[in-house]
């Protein structure tokens, strides 16, 4: 059985799944809009969570957050699951598919067969959407793949219960009821923007938001002395990968958010947002410049190599830039309520 599901690739996996799911229920919304309404722009550098033995740097909120936020703003009812029993997780999925409901879910990429081998790390925050089942084979709409792909029962079970940092534990979600849906208005967009400002500016812990970028810069200056050239370069490579990798891209997210601000400026009839979108594009370009220079440091092919201090300076500049943008947004669009 196959659902009549239109698959469109996207820049970030969760946006893609949410926007494809919404389209199935007749709500046409661009990826950028989903990302913006979900307040998806974020930064976190968390030394207490390790991935491959190194601190986790994330450019996104927890998986599932974008989905919940967008749909609560649209007043659409959703259902989220988490399982302990693997067979039950698959049975529930099957029964939902039989009722004609496409199901988004969280998977680990380590065992995903259609991913290139080089990308298969123990990264457990990838989103896919299951849209049909023929016998033992599931049809999967993965937003980072151009076409729909397939996974067997055993493969899907394995990736849904991947192990490692932040195990997905069979997490899945679907849209339950769209009858009470409301349209995207200027007020919805404003609330989403304010929420994103709060997330970037007001979390009172130095590891998150614009403070988090400075925190990473501060730690980066000490890497080489603390753990030697090799380990420092590995840490840097991990950050570049997190920054640029498909589905998690940090720089890419800045561009998606800039695209959202453009759309928002039309909805809210607010030309100022378009200017801020251009500013955000500059922030994204600064992130790309950071990645480019980090790659040069990793390769060590230059006569006059860039140092970790210089890279950290770049990060500080980025944090100042983003802080200015979000302070502007917060000032222009309502009182910054404490979260």
């Amino acid at each position: 059985m196959q659902l009549d599901f239109i698959h469109k690739p996207s820049g970030h996996c969760e946006n893609g799944v949410v926007s494809n799911l919404l389209r199935y229920y007749g709500v046409e919304m661009s990826e950028a809009m989903v990302f913006g309404l979900g307040s998806g722009l974020f930064f976190a550098h968390m030394p207490f969570i390790r991935l491959h033995g190194m601190a986790v740097t994330s450019f996104r909120p927890l998986p599932g957050d974008i989905f919940s936020r967008v749909l609560s703003l649209l007043n659409i009812k959703i259902k989220r699951y988490k399982f302990r029993d693997r067979e039950r997780a698959m049975r529930t999925l099957d029964s939902l598919l039989e009722r004609g409901i496409p199901v988004g879910m969280l998977v680990g990429v380590y065992h995903l067969p259609y991913f290139p081998k080089e990308y298969r790390f123990h990264f457990n925050a990838h989103n896919i959407c299951v849209t049909g089942k023929e016998g033992d084979v599931y049809t999967v709409s993965d937003p980072v793949v151009v076409d729909k792909c397939t996974l067997t029962y055993d493969e899907l079970k394995l990736v849904r219960f991947a192990s490692g940092t932040y195990p997905p534990k069979g997490r899945m979600y679907h849209i339950a009821d769209v009858r009470s849906k409301c349209d995207v208005t200027a007020e919805t967009v404003r609330r989403a923007i304010v929420k994103n400002c709060n997330r970037m500016l007001k979390i009172p812990v130095p590891m998150f938001g614009v403070k988090g970028i400075r925190f990473l810069a501060w730690r980066m200056r000490k890497w080489e002395g603390r753990m030697g050239a090799k380990r420092a370069a590995l840490n840097l490579a991990q950050i570049v990968r997190m920054n640029e990798e498909i589905g998690t891209g940090g720089a890419g997210f800045r561009f998606i958010y800039a695209a959202f601000l453009q759309e928002a400026s039309v909805i809210m009839n607010e030309p100022r947002l378009r200017e801020l979108s251009a500013e955000m594009t500059i922030a994204g370009d600064m992130w790309r410049d950071f990645s480019y220079n980090a790659a040069r440091l990793i390769k060590k092919r230059d006569a006059e190599p860039i140092t970790y201090d210089q890279l950290a300076d770049k990060l500080v500049a980025i944090s100042q830039k983003e802080e200015a943008i979000f302070r502007d947004l917060a000032k222009g669009f309502g009182p910054c309520k404490q979260m």
């Binding site: 690739p9 996207s10 820049g11 990826e31 950028a32 259609y114 991913f115 290139p116 990308y119 980072v144 793949v145 151009v146 076409d147 792909c149 840097l236 490579a237 991990q238 570049v240 990968r241 640029e244 990798e245 498909i246 891209g249 890419g252 561009f255 998606i256 800039a258 695209a259 453009q262 378009r274 251009a278 594009t281 790309r288 990645s291 480019y292 980090a294 790659a295 990793i298 390769k299």
Partner: peptide, 30 residues
Amino acid sequence: SGVRDVCYATDENGDYKQIISVGWDAKNVA
């Protein structure tokens, strides 16, 4: 593979467009 990177970039009017990319050297190096 079938995996691609969807990038957002601005055209000559400053409007955002989706462009499909097959990778970037900086990322490949990392």
